[in-house]
Design a protein around this nucleic acid. Structure first.
Length: 783
DNA sequence: GCCTGATACATACCG
DNA sequence: ACCGGTATGTATCAGGCG
């Protein structure tokens, strides 16, 4: 027997002579790549026994039910008796559970729609991207590309061991040559594939030199010899892997890149998995970052501070470039640079990725692809085990709306010295304070004594004060962990490894904490309970209103507020009093987060712009921060905002705006700044009304471009008559002389500017009038 | 058949 | 495939109008 320290990278399972075998892939303390086999866990599910004897009798007669045992468990806080039912044929867990759920005396089936690997992780408390001690014996490697293979003798034991793990990483970027529209793997060859390892190997395979077949062979050989733990790319789930597999097939090859010689395969959440390796798609990371509007690799790189060669190349540029040797050269160096950028973005991402994976207990490759709801749910499943809660099946539930947060009416105008007071984790704190949880919720028909429950305002839902609900427990762990990390971070140098990892972890914790309320109100959630979400927002509204009332009572002028924040005229003493009130009387924490030297509010909620102490300008909600306005309109609005905030002179802002606007009128503006991007949210046929971006998308599809739901369509408005949708073109096809510059002035720039200046009594005419008329208004400033 | 205002649809934002 | 609240632009339709 050997005892090993083992870091878990990936987990999968396979059938071996009728048994499920779990494979744990990872690294040892000495940096050896190993795989561990374990058949100890038998497939199972739970059936709640409402009539134990009756149910037991029927269970005996069901084929493939190997054995079962009666256990104590909990469902939504209620103690129940349930049979843990072991199934001999792992493929039949679902169907047998379905059959058992219909038996007399059965009160529902639980833990039945989880993958076997998930049961394994939960039952043995195994942590992806975490260290364990394992007791093993050596076994045959079966040609697996690994240093050692072992058979597990006991379940793994998770240990708090922290050690930086150095992965072997391969980044790649491929370029196919499209014949028409988007490249199609059925007919369009891959002409170049760039690779880069984190150990310094760089190359670009070129179909001109080695043929497409040679290019793919080179790629497979590199994976074979370098044997990476991680293979990273951009857009690999939606495109690259499938493309490579099809082109491999067309060349009589198999894309055997898995450590066990298997090919990439589609797995849960739409992820493409590679056996024994982490297949990462940085697109998923970009998708998670709201500030990145158009999810290109360049934009991700810019966001992360990774430098990109200033060379724009899009798919429609490729065919023409490929015709000349100079163009081909450019394509090759472009691919190489993209590969470098992918590797650098990977380095910025990986600490956070590992921490998130470890926290929510989803393997690293899947956690990136999993939506927030599934991440929260996975974390909750882990917590539920400690409470003895069985895991409900995912079922369709009807949608029933409920009231959310409140937003205060802003005081329009320019204000000076405004402090923003934010509640710290308002919803999680409220959920903890009032023990809001699926297992503490009191059904309407249940009688309770007034002192044993919390009653939500407005909606009247009740929650038991004791014992702790499992949401309270789950949140407490998160908040305590984060507080502890914050304390540690203070004593660490930001450049140290430990700081980097802890900071990544606290970010991961924050994401999960903040998503917990949203999860509770999601109809797809296993632990969905509308009253939970509804009560949380009700207490939230009450809290905010009470805070506003008190602020006004002590003479603080409240300018705005939204959900968990209030904007007040800065007054140190009174703010301190308000903070004290909130902490002592409401039992929550409020903190001045931001101080604006100056801030502009329009009549509209959720839209404002402020000047910070350090001179930066913060814009919220306005056109300037939206992805569906042209850059030129956004740029001019930003400029107007900046001048007003810095000088207080609307006239000066107008003067500048007029200058910029007149450039547009004569066509002195790059086409790039005229693109209006909109997301296609469904297939073009599903739209009830025709819109500009849908029309453009239809045209692109007709021309052979792969465009579907979720894709962004970039349009430019061109001269013509009729509806807007009759006057737009996909941006790729527009020449400067086609552009309808008047549209941009009247429907983009003017509205964006007027939105701001109208606050100060100026109108469209003031923007468009000659300077002479303006002077009549005189030079005045707002402060 | 054209104009106008009301309404529905579509998108993206805030917290 | 986390929530509800909000702003805003464009399409579409009903009704007025000799």
């Amino acid at each position: 027997m050997i005892s090993l320290r083992f870091y878990l990278l990936d987990i999968d399972s396979r059938l071996r002579s009728g048994e499920v075998e779990v494979r744990l892939w990872g690294l040892t303390d000495e940096g050896r790549r190993v795989v561990l086999f374990d058949r100890a866990l038998k497939p199972y599910f739970y059936a709640v026994a409402e009539n134990t004897e009756l149910l037991e009798k029927q269970l005996k007669s069901i084929g493939d039910v190997e054995e079962f045992e009666l256990k104590e468990a909990r469902i939504f806080g209620k103690n129940v008796k349930a049979f843990k039912i072991y199934v001999s044929n792992p493929d039949r867990v679902d169907s047998i559970a379905e059959a058992v759920s219909k038996l007399k005396g059965c009160g529902g089936v639980y833990d039945c729609d989880l993958r076997h690997t998930q049961h394994y992780l939960l039952d043995y408390d195994v942590q992806p991207c975490g260290w364990h001690v394992v007791e093993v014996e050596p076994t045959d490697k079966e040609n697996i590309k690994i240093d050692e293979a072992y058979r597990m003798l006991k379940p793994p034991v998770s240990i708090g061991y922290q050690k930086d793990v150095i992965f072997r990483v391969l980044a790649f970027y491929m370029i196919p040559l499209p014949s028409k529209g988007s490249a199609k793997p059925e007919k369009d060859k891959i002409v170049c594939l760039a690779v880069r390892t984190n150990e310094g190997y760089v190359n670009v395979y070129n179909s001109e030199e080695v043929g497409e077949r040679g290019l793919i062979e080179n790629f497979i050989e590199l994976i074979d010899s370098f044997n990476p733990d991680v293979i990273v790319g951009y857009g690999t789930n939606a495109r690259d892997w499938e493309y490579l597999a099809k082109r491999a097939e067309a060349n009589g090859l198999k894309l055997k890149v898995g450590r066990d010689g298997s090919e990439p395969h589609r797995s849960v959440y739409g992820h493409i998995s590679i056996a024994g390796r982490i297949a990462l798609d940085l697109y998923d990371y970009a998708d998670d970052i709201a500030d990145i509007k158009i999810k290109t690799l360049e934009n991700l790189a810019a966001y992360l501070g990774v430098g990109v060669k200033d060379e724009l190349m899009e798919e429609y540029d490729i065919p023409k470039l490929w015709e000349s040797s100079e163009g081909r050269q450019r394509i090759l160096s472009y691919a190489l640079d993209r590969c470098r950028v992918i590797m650098e973005c990977f380095k910025e991402f990986i600490d956070y990725g590992c921490q998130l994976s470890n926290l929510v207990c989803i393997p690293l490759d899947h956690v990136c692809t999993a939506a927030v709801g599934f991440r929260v749910e996975s974390y909750l499943m882990k917590c539920s085990r400690k409470f003895g809660e069985l895991i409900p099946k995912r079922i369709e539930k009807p949608y029933q709306p409920y009231a959310g947060a409140i937003v205060l009416e802003p005081k329009p105008g320019l204000h000076e010295n405004v402090a923003v007071l934010d509640f710290r984790s308002m919803y999680p704190s409220i959920m903890m304070k009032f023990n809001i949880s699926p297992d503490t919720y009191v059904e309407p028909e249940v009688n309770t004594k007034p002192e044993e429950v919390f009653i939500a305002p407005e909606v009247g839902h009740r929650f038991f004060k004791k014992p702790d609900g499992f949401y309270r427990d789950a949140l407490k762990r998160l908040l305590e962990a984060r507080a502890e990390i914050s304390k540690k971070l203070k004593d660490l140098s930001p450049s140290s490894t430990e700081y980097r990892i802890l900071d990544a972890r606290q970010k991961a914790i924050k994401v999960i904490t903040n998503a917990m309320y949203g999860y509770a109100g999601w109809i797809g959630a296993r632990w969905y309970r509308r009253p939970i979400a509804e009560s949380t927002t009700a207490w939230g509204r009450k809290t905010l209103l009470e805070t506003v009332d008190y602020a006004m009572k002590i003479g603080l002028s409240v300018i705005y507020g939204d959900t968990d924040s209030i904007f007040v005229k800065h007054d140190q003493e009174k703010i301190e009093e308000l903070v004290k009130y909130v902490s002592e009387k409401l039992g929550l924490e409020i903190k001045p987060e931001t101080i604006y030297r100056r801030i502009i509010f329009t009549e509209a909620k959720k839209r404002y712009a402020g000047l910070l102490a350090d001179g930066r300008i913060d814009i919220t909600g306005l056109e300037a921060v939206r992805g569906d306005w042209s850059e030129i309109a956004k740029k001019i609005q930003r400029e107007v905002i900046r001048i007003i905030l810095e000088t207080g002179s609307v006239e000066q802002a107008l003067k500048e705006a007029r200058k910029m606007l007149s450039d547009v009128e004569v066509g002195k503006v790059p086409l790039r700044e005229l693109i209006i991007w909109k997301t296609l949210t469904k297939t073009t046929e599903d739209y009830k009304v025709l819109t500009a971006h849908v029309k453009a998308a239809q045209r692109l599809v007709d021309m052979g471009w792969d465009i579907g739901p979720g894709d962004k369509v970039g349009i430019i408005v061109v001269k013509g008559t009729g509806r807007l949708y009759d006057r737009v073109e996909p941006y790729q096809f527009v020449k400067p002389e086609d552009v309808d510059y008047r549209y941009y002035v009247e429907n983009q720039i003017v509205p964006a500017v007027v939105r701001i200046i109208s606050v100060f009594g100026y109108r469209e005419e003031d923007l468009r009038a000659p300077i002479k008329t303006m002077e009549k208004k005189g030079q005045r400033t707002l402060f």
